[in-house]
Design a protein around this nucleic acid. Structure first.
Length: 424
RNA sequence: GGAGAGAUGGCCGAGUGGACGAAGGCGCUCCCCUGCUAAGGGAGUAUAGGGUCAAAAGCCUUAUCGCGGGUUCGAAUCCCGCUCUCUCCGCCA
């Protein structure tokens, strides 16, 4: 959520910044809502103050044993007015809130302007991509090995699921262990285990609701629970309605969870293989920092995700998403894309974002300022470190030989009991 | 799933219809005293909004005692529903 004070004081500036990302801010609607709100709220609060003062007088008069019926008569009128006004104000505030919750974050000044993914800006490349010539894709490789089974998953559930067997299932487990170990031992993150089902308040906090509910799997329970689309939701919401000590910052958390996405609107996209699934494993990095530190933390967090690819010796590049391609809640996003020989291009394997205070304001996630002693909004960040399923895909494709066997990256061999090759 | 108890500020804890945004204590901040330390004295110390203001301060004001509703001129306090926590029983990986 954007700062309502800023919204009120400089709506034109906000509109111009949102226009950078192609979002049309309805200025006249905002100003009309705001004008009504101001009148109604002022009037309502005046009535409430009148009522409070009247009640107080009744109490005092009764204490002195005086007759209170004249005051009481007056209170009847105020009571009815207050009730009517409060109702109208509530409705208006709900309308205003819905409007405000529908506004995306303002892009950071350093984010390049652009319309879509074609305008993203490459920052750097690492490693040497192998040629696409003769490279099989991961689905063909996995099925040929007899260790990756989409038909079985389709029978169990439907499209966009997979069954892994034997050394491939173990390879995925090894990847999770490996990533968690690197981030906890070398990058200073605390490992967390969290619920895979969250309530609506949590999803609102990180920005999935109210706008993107169709991407989520909802449970048919009374509680309005959803499966998490990413560990970002439960992990970041640990901060919700909490005040951190400044000395405790930055908070750095890592969690492995499965992720569940409805992939509504993705029909026909990446239909083959493990690239886009309804259920996939991910190791997620989350940080909460002082506002003035968040952009440096963003660089560090991205480097932490990159370190995994370097240790696995997988070629990748880092791009800055342009204003038009960024996610709803993000102020700035780096995507890390890994080389996939079968597709002869780089594909997203991690997305690292700085949300600044956008999520924190929704969640009321704060820290106590050491000098003013007042609670201030902190900044939140997160990034995949990495998407495990896509890392598995990248290993199969980059480490294949002509016969369809897969070499195990050196860094992973200790996690597979020294296994060097996965072959038929 | 059954029975019972509870939820109050950074923490502990009092408060069962009116001067309560909330006693008291702890903690924290500032000041005084004390040649260090310890002890003592005083003052301050919840959050989110709105209005006024160029802005800040200040001032005025609203809401908040787990959440939502109700009764009442007036609710931390009474009533209803819900959530969560604890204890006991049952069940269970």
């Amino acid at each position: 959520m954007l700062d309502p004070k800023l919204l009120r004081a400089q709506p034109e500036t906000v509109a111009a910044q949102l226009a950078r990302r192609g979002f049309v801010f309805d200025l006249s609607r905002f100003q009309e809502l705001e004008a009504r709100r101001k009148t109604l709220q002022t009037e309502t609060e005046k009535l409430q103050a009148e009522r409070n003062a009247g009640s107080k007088r009744i109490g005092q008069a009764k204490g002195r044993g005086e007759d209170v019926s004249p005051i009481l008569a007056d209170m009847d009128r105020i009571k009815a007015q207050v009730a009517a006004n409060e109702q109208a104000l509530n409705a208006l505030q709900t309308e205003f809130e819905d409007f405000a919750l529908g506004l995306p974050n303002v892009p950071h000044a350093s984010v390049p302007d652009g319309k879509d993914e074609h305008d993203n800006v490459e920052q750097r490349r690492w490693g040497t991509p192998r040629s696409a010539a003769g490279a099989k894709d991961h689905a063909d490789l996995g099925e040929a090995l007899g260790l990756m089974d989409f038909a079985a998953a389709a029978k169990l559930t439907g499209a966009r699921f997979v069954v892994l067997r034997g050394q491939l299932a173990r390879l995925q487990r090894a990847l999770i262990q490996f990533m968690l170990d690197v981030h906890t031992r070398e990058h200073g993150y605390q490992e967390l285990y969290v619920p895979y089902i969250v309530n609506a308040a949590s999803l609102r906090g990180t920005g999935q609701l109210p706008k993107f509910g169709e991407d989520l799997f909802a449970l048919k329970t009374e509680q309005d629970w959803r499966l998490i689309p990413t560990a970002e939701v439960p992990v970041t919401n640990l901060l919700r309605e909490e005040i951190q000590a400044a000395e405790a910052l930055p908070l750095k958390w890592v969690a492995h969870t499965p992720c569940f996405r409805a992939e509504a609107g993705a029909a026909g996209k990446d239909t083959k293989g493990m690239i886009r699934q309804h259920q996939f494993e991910k190791v997620e990095l989350v940080q909460a920092t002082l506002p003035e530190r968040s952009h440096q933390a963003h660089e560090e967090l991205t480097a932490h995700a990159e370190a995994i690819l370097q240790k696995l010796e997988l070629p990748y590049r880092v791009i800055t998403l342009c204003t038009g391609d960024m996610g709803f809640s993000s102020a700035k996003t780096y995507d890390i894309e890994v080389w996939l020989p079968s597709q002869d291009r780089y594909r997203e394997i991690s997305s690292c974002s700085n949300f600044e205070d956008f999520q924190a304001r929704r969640m009321l996630a704060r820290y106590r300022h050491p000098e003013t002693k007042k609670p201030e909004l902190l900044h939140t960040l997160n990034g995949s470190g990495l998407a495990v399923g896509r890392t598995l895909v990248a290993i199969l494709e980059n480490y294949q030989d002509e016969g369809g066997a897969i070499a195990v990256p050196a860094a992973l061999q200790p996690y597979l009991g020294g296994l060097e090759r996965i072959a038929k």
